[in-house]
Design a protein around this nucleic acid. Structure first.
Lengths: 121, 121
DNA sequence: ACTCGATGATTACAGATGTAGTCGTAGCGA
DNA sequence: TCGCTACGACTACATCTGTAATCATCGAGT
């Protein structure tokens, strides 16, 4: 699967949240703080279409856009990528790392323990 | 901290593994399959220097390069970035996600449980 | 029928990145 | 001393990404 840039991801998030949408609708839902022109959003949609990560169907003379990859699949790809790049492809070192860096609260620890326990059964 | 591209990262890995090194030495240690010219390695080193993630000291008319950021710090940055991008900044959803995706072996689960247990004490 | 606005397509441009060649020069070997 | 070679600096160029303007056109309203 193609990579998705930071700005492009903001568009994907909109579509993952609700689809299908027209370009104008997407533009209306992109976070305000981006301050994007409608043209920018249309460029993003074109590029994402070219990459095959969004699909479009025609509705009159407009397009209706929808994601062509699931958020979960993309998340999986990016997670695997980080794991491969920095942690030899293994999750344990990542968890250890985040723990050392105080990115793990006691609550997180509880949650993950519960999760793992559930996994084992 | 500045971002580091994929190719640049290969150079960083060399320096994280052993430093200081001259440009020629770095080139000699970069993975074969990159098939890089020495010039490519020198460009990488210049750019990484400009980004402030590698430092160099002069040794005669050559430079000796060394990392200016720890691998752990960079890993932390990239981990945080993924977490923020895809998992609302929280680790639990990432672990849950990888578990669902069968990226967690029973052995991984044991290891992480042991790790968390140690953390609590 | 005609104009105007919205729409996708095309073009523009700067910065980052991957990849590598050229240039000026300082030092080493003959 | 003189030329070669290795070094960093600079230049080159394609692709990707962020951001946006322009263009041709189709349809809706007058």
């Amino acid at each position: 699967m193609e990579r998705i840039g930071d700005a492009e991801l903001a568009v994907m998030e909109v579509l993952w949240n609700d689809a299908p949408l027209t370009a104008a609708e997407v533009a209306g839902r992109v976070p305000e703080d981006r301050g994007w022109s409608i043209n920018t959003v249309k460029t993003m949609l074109s590029r994402l279409s070219a990459k095959g990560v969004v699909a479009h169907e025609e509705e009159g003379r407009r397009y209706l856009y929808r994601p062509a990859v699931a958020r979960e699949d993309y998340a999986a790809q990016e997670s695997g990528r980080l794991l491969d790049r920095m942690f030899g492809g293994r999750l344990t070192p990542l968890v250890a790392h985040l723990a050392e860096r105080d990115r793990l609260s006691p609550k997180d620890i509880e949650e993950i323990e519960a999760l793992l326990k559930a996994l084992k059964s």
